[in-house]
Design a protein around this nucleic acid. Structure first.
Length: 257
DNA sequence: ATGGTCGAGTATCGA
């Protein structure tokens, strides 16, 4: 099974590139973030014509997440299922695809260290773990896919010095991610490529992509049962090139089921 | 030279 995740930075703006990418990358499951669409505007039919069922959780303008699957899509859940108050944002959708519990997540950016948005980001990460506890067991086949807005290690940013004091690299954010991993998840890309410095996001400005000034913040986290069956992982940098790209590249992982 | 670019929507804000 090929599982992929892609922050598309507006699905409306990416409706040429996403179907094109499905055609050549052939994922079985694709998690999308930042669709920036209301549910009524999500192009279910266009994806159905390509063989994908889909579930979307969005409110328009900001955020918005989806799961596309050509191996079945059952028991969709929008937002947190931990019994708490509904999230103010549309950042999480969960579904069962081909025997795997799949989560598409868009962790808040945090904006500035110490801000209210930063506190919301940390709380959101902690709540994601509680959601996971509510919907799955670590012994299950689980894939938590998305834009985490956290670079797990200094290896995952082009120049750690530039990011000192900034979001995405603080000990608090990395601790939040570690707490999530400690539920029973493995960073699939890093498992396949322990030493590579490869990124999944590059700012549009200043030619950052061509200068290799990026961060690896888009992750596929798999439970141990899937981690043992990892075949391959890839950041598709080609999808960041050319006309009208997202500022993120898709990350894909192959597991033998 | 201290910006640079996108996408939302149509003045700025968010990333």
């Amino acid at each position: 099974m090929r599982i992929a995740t892609w922050n598309v930075n507006s699905l409306k703006a990416r409706m040429e590139r996403v179907p094109e990418w499905l055609g050549y990358a052939q994922p079985d499951v694709l998690c999308l973030q930042e669709t920036k669409l209301a549910d009524a505007a999500f192009p279910h039919l266009a994806f159905q014509a390509l063989g994908y069922e889909s579930v979307h959780h969005g409110s328009g303008q900001w955020n918005g997440v989806a799961i596309l699957s050509r191996v079945g899509l059952e028991s969709p859940v929008c937002g947190f299922a931990d019994g708490g108050e509904p999230d103010q944002d549309t950042r999480l959708v969960t579904a069962r695809c081909g025997g795997v519990s799949v989560l598409s997540v868009y962790v808040p950016n945090g904006r500035a260290v110490g801000s209210g948005h930063f506190a919301y980001k940390l709380a959101w990460l902690a709540r994601l773990r509680r959601h996971l506890e509510a919907v799955a067991s670590p012994a299950d086949a689980v894939a938590v896919c998305g834009d985490f807005n956290v670079a797990p290690a200094d290896q995952d940013v082009w120049d750690p010095k530039v990011f000192e004091g900034s979001t995405h690299v603080t000990p608090e954010e990395r601790e939040g991610l570690s707490e999530l991993l400690s539920w029973g998840l493995v960073d699939a890309f890093r498992g396949v490529w322990p030493d590579e410095k490869l990124y999944s996001y590059w700012d549009y400005r200043a030619g950052d992509f061509h200068e290799h000034r990026g961060m690896r913040i888009d992750l596929v986290l798999v439970s141990r049962s899937l981690a043992g069956k990892l075949q391959w992982a890839l950041v598709d940098r080609n999808a960041r090139k050319g006309k009208f790209p997202s500022d993120h590249a898709p990350v894909l992982v192959d597991v033998e089921l």
